[in-house]
Design a protein around this nucleic acid. Structure first.
Lengths: 199, 199
DNA sequence: TTGCGATAGTTATAGCCTATAACACTCTAG
DNA sequence: CTAGAGTGTTATAGGCTATAACTATCGCAA
């Protein structure tokens, strides 16, 4: 694949790549990750499918890029939310709220990260790092609310607990499992957040 | 498709159908739902792919059967667990434990029910009924631990809370998200169960 | 300014899959 | 013992990913 990182050629290349990403996200939103089709994207862009292999090594490769992009976007969102205040409790609330907004506005994007994985597939190492970056703001905020011994470990456990509880709500909400069930996801989410903040 | 419900023909038919199901589950376990291939199943059974269309209208049709089979199996598992004791608290523990065993022993089967859905796809009505059957034993056990006004609603809310918390752990565990993270899923699960029983 | 090499696109093709159609065999029920 | 239902086959259409071989174009350097 091409080397130059600047110049008109590189600029055009990046334009095409992001346009592909945009179409890909649209497809994922309406047909899920398994519905992602290079051929369909190419047609929407007025090209033929093989042309896209100049930009992405494979369909899986594109999907991996999208997963990493989702991770990065969530990490930035979470970090920005934490930066909006200095008070630890407010930070936890802000991060949790931002997480929910992020998940609800694009459920398939959330599930691309935290949903059903393909058994064989292993995410690149960068994904693990980004997952930790998403985790970190919550943990440091929760740590700041603690005093005494083993603060590190206790705040980690608390963060895991918060994370799994919020994810429990978000994942069922994103999957539509509350749709037939007299449940208010936003309220439930708030209660789960409170349950950890009170403990 | 054929009518008779008994006789040698019907018996053979059922044998083939269940053999297809078995191969399908094996494929799902090792390649996920998206890896399910009628042609591969046919080859494993020494037949050609079109032959399977005598038994299943389509690949999606087979998948729907598998989803419903998973629902039914989980419903029976949960009901059996609840029936093992009369004490409500023990019932909640038994059902939760059975749920975790069921989920961990076949993560892809659990995720087939509670994991990422395909956006367009709508499960048959029977799925919703079975989901309620899975929910019911927990709710009645939790209701039996309550007294006072609005017991119905309070036990429902409590069951939703328990369900989302357990699912939060199970879904992240099934997806392998704890693998790189010093977390003991079984312990976490037990703590989450306890958190609801104590509330 | 021009021409050469890198880049971007094409068509053709292989291979995998689902699904249908048309055909042949076999078994069972009357 | 035979007619028809049921089961399986091959052939085929059409979708997809992906590679190969070819062509056109663009931009940089001489």
């Amino acid at each position: 694949m091409p080397q130059p990182t600047d110049g008109p050629r590189a600029r055009y290349r990046e334009q095409v790549r992001t346009e592909v990403h945009d179409h890909a996200w649209a497809q994922i939103a309406e047909a899920g990750a398994s519905g992602l089709s290079l051929k369909a994207i190419a047609q929407q862009m007025g090209m033929t499918a093989p042309a896209l292999y100049r930009y992405f090594a494979s369909r899986d490769d594109l999907l991996t890029e999208l997963v990493l992009a989702a991770y990065r976007d969530l990490a930035e969102t979470v970090e920005a939310a934490a930066a909006r205040t200095g008070d630890p409790t407010r930070q936890v609330r802000a991060v949790s709220g931002a997480l929910r907004v992020w998940a609800v506005q694009a459920p398939q994007r959330y599930l691309l990260i935290y949903g059903t994985p393909v058994p064989g597939y292993t995410a690149p190492p960068e994904a693990t790092e980004l997952a930790q970056r998403i985790f970190a703001p919550l943990q440091s905020a929760l740590a700041a609310r603690l005093t005494g011994a083993r603060r590190e470990r206790r705040s980690f456990d608390l963060t895991v607990r918060l994370w799994t509880r919020l994810h429990g709500v978000l994942s069922l909400e994103a999957a539509g499992h509350f749709d037939t069930m007299d449940v208010e996801p936003a309220t439930l989410f708030a209660h789960e957040l409170a349950s950890v903040l009170e403990s």
